[in-house]
């Protein structure tokens, strides 16, 4: 039954490669994006996917690590969006303006409706 582990290892490396690619995209986006909110969006969305993929790949490489890496993935899934939303809200309240090309400002609309 050695070939099952070989296939698992290959899939694990494929997942790690996908994850590293998304992390690379996230860091390029961090440099390219024009304002805080766009940067935060790349830094959270792409990083969450990349980190989850890398963790799943590591779990496939050695099946003993699978529960641990799944738990770590669950906590990244729980904490990263919350932190990003808190940061975005704080920077909006601190008065950082949107980029001039932005067209949607849901937060402001909601404020005006109240």
């Amino acid at each position: 039954m050695n070939w099952i582990f070989l296939i698992l290892e290959i899939f694990g490396y494929i997942f790690i490669g996908i994850g590293s690619f998304f992390l690379l995209l996230a860091s390029i986006g961090l440099l390219r994006m024009p304002d805080v909110y766009n940067r935060m969006q790349t830094a959270t969305k792409a990083t969450t996917l990349g980190a989850l993929s890398v963790l799943f790949g590591i779990g496939l490489l050695d099946l003993n690590w699978m529960p641990k890496s799944l738990v770590i993935a669950l906590f990244i899934l729980l904490t990263a969006p919350v932190g990003a939303s808190a940061l975005a809200r704080a920077s909006y309240k601190a008065g950082i303006a949107l980029w001039k090309g932005s067209v949607v400002d849901k937060y402001k609309e909601e404020k005006e409706e109240e």
Binding site: L78, T79, P81, V82, S85, A86, R89
Partner: peptide, 11 residues
């Protein structure tokens, strides 16, 4: 934020 409140209660 409501998101922060819920998540901190959970975490």
């Amino acid at each position: 934020n409501a998101v922060v409140e819920t998540a901190s209660k959970l975490l």
